[in-house]
Amino acid sequence: MNVLVCVTKTPDTTAKIGFVEENTRFDATGVQFIMNPYDEWYALVRALELKEAQGGKVTLISVGGPDCDQVIRKGLAIGADEAVRIDLQPTDAFQVASEIATYAKANDFDLVFTGKESIESNGSEVGSMIAELLDWPFLSYASKMEMEGNTATVDLEIEGGEDTVRVDTPFVLSAAKGLAEQRIPNMRGIMMAKSKPLQVLPGSGAAPRTSITGYTLPKEKEAVRLIDPENMNELVRLLKEEAKVI
């Protein structure tokens, strides 16, 4: 199996989020970037397991500037064989998906894996776009996948449960929790990653279709209203009469 794993960088999950230039640009000052957890913990690790079981190759792809290289190197340290970076700062999901689909078409892959969403964009749409651009089936929010030959049996997260479906390669899959167990890179992996190929390619020129005009921060919460733990009738009254939620 040759698997293309799409990885993106996101601010660390504990990063404080702020904006500059009249709230039109993310303030990256002092922000630590990590690999998007769904890409790292689930998509990449499941791809590595497939390779370990059936042979083949795991290729990472990231659309972004040189600031992505650190995240890509981590993926190589975890065990990917090689990596490609499409050298542009993407504006929207369509631009990302177009670049990835163009690369996937020109090369020989059985599978394309993405995370279920980027915790930065909360988009959940790059995978679905790649699937359409390649005209492949799409397994969205996969929490389990068993592979036998070229046939996969996949569990998909749905509201309040899961669907199980069967599909033959090639297909695109977006990874959710459960698909694999997180792996921590070891010293040997980190050393080996340094000599693995990271190819930098120019973008194909696909134009974005949306642009961000500005950001807002959520309204500051008012201070919490503390209620006497002995008096739950008061809490119920407030929820009913003031908040009107019960």
Partner: peptide, 24 residues
């Protein structure tokens, strides 16, 4: 809807219709 189905459909529809899309 930004549901499990909607999430699987929206990117495909954007590509098919040559439309810009916003999720959620």
């Amino acid at each position: 809807s930004h549901s499990s189905r909607g999430k699987a459909l929206i990117g495909r529809l954007a590509v098919r219709l040559q439309a810009g899309s916003v999720t959620g």
